[in-house]
Design a protein around this nucleic acid. Sequence first.
DNA 1: TATTGTTATACTCTATAACTATA
DNA 2: TATAGTTATAGAGTATAACAATA
Lengths: 157, 157
Amino acid sequence: MSIEADRDTERHELARQSWQALYGLFLNGEGQRRFMDACASCGLPPGAVKALMQVVDHGQSSMRELADSFHCDPSYVTSLVDALEQAGLVERRLHPTDRRVKVVAVTPAGLEMREDVEQRLSEPLPSMDVLDNDELRLLRDLLLKVHHASLAAPGER
Amino acid sequence: MSIEADRDTERHELARQSWQALYGLFLNGEGQRRFMDACASCGLPPGAVKALMQVVDHGQSSMRELADSFHCDPSYVTSLVDALEQAGLVERRLHPTDRRVKVVAVTPAGLEMREDVEQRLSEPLPSMDVLDNDELRLLRDLLLKVHHASLAAPGER
DNA sequence: TATTGTTATACTCTATAACTATA
DNA sequence: TATAGTTATAGAGTATAACAATA
């Protein structure tokens, strides 16, 4: 019983330290800056870029679905989609059965822009040079495993 | 020569995929939400919380040092430190030799608050349950290695 | 009556410009 | 003259409230 409790404590401590190292790389760090730079070079506000990524990666969505996914107010989604539509990156279409709903769909230009953002974001952090190829492979596989689990978990995104 | 180029390509691709999995967990994800929640429960704006963390973790700093570290305008630092000082979490002190400079030092209450934030932030992502203890240890060590390298690198923070 | 989306409005966060004090 | 910090102000980003259209 005590051994089991110790094992739980150790496990939790390991998970905590891992998570700590993970967000330490992002909070106030290169990740944020990278994302902001990508937005600036698109000429789009960060929210709009996230919305574009959402629409491309999860397929066309209604305004409400976007608001729910972002945990934000619908009126804010209006302004984001306005910006994207004005830039020709998405279109508002009619929902086939419910005429209250507007469906946000990506355009070819939007797809291209999303690719462009991905290119910028995925350029690796220079500090990753301290890892050799085997370590990188290991890190990638571990993170992907967590990432996939987090995509599957409801509410965690 | 071709083999070397291939190795470089592979390496870069690995680094890219790793970085991608890393920021995928943060961008628009649990990390952001977690941080915002922590700020809300402190009753402080996000910028102020980051400033508090900086002052605690890097020792007392001048206003200018904070502005440089955040890549932001000094006037914004004024408002952040105002908020922290009003909450009794930091103090503005006189610089011993240069009377233009104000040194921002954490108070006992500030130290406690920073601990509190750390507790909330470091609570692991539930999806990390998909990893066993050995995998967690591996992940932690790899991320810490990168993290330390990134702290040492100038300009990367 | 409840829900989707928009408009009008206000509040928070962050930057720019002008200023004071010190070096 | 140049630098540290503040104030006043303006601009993004985001939310709240009231509203129109559809279900």
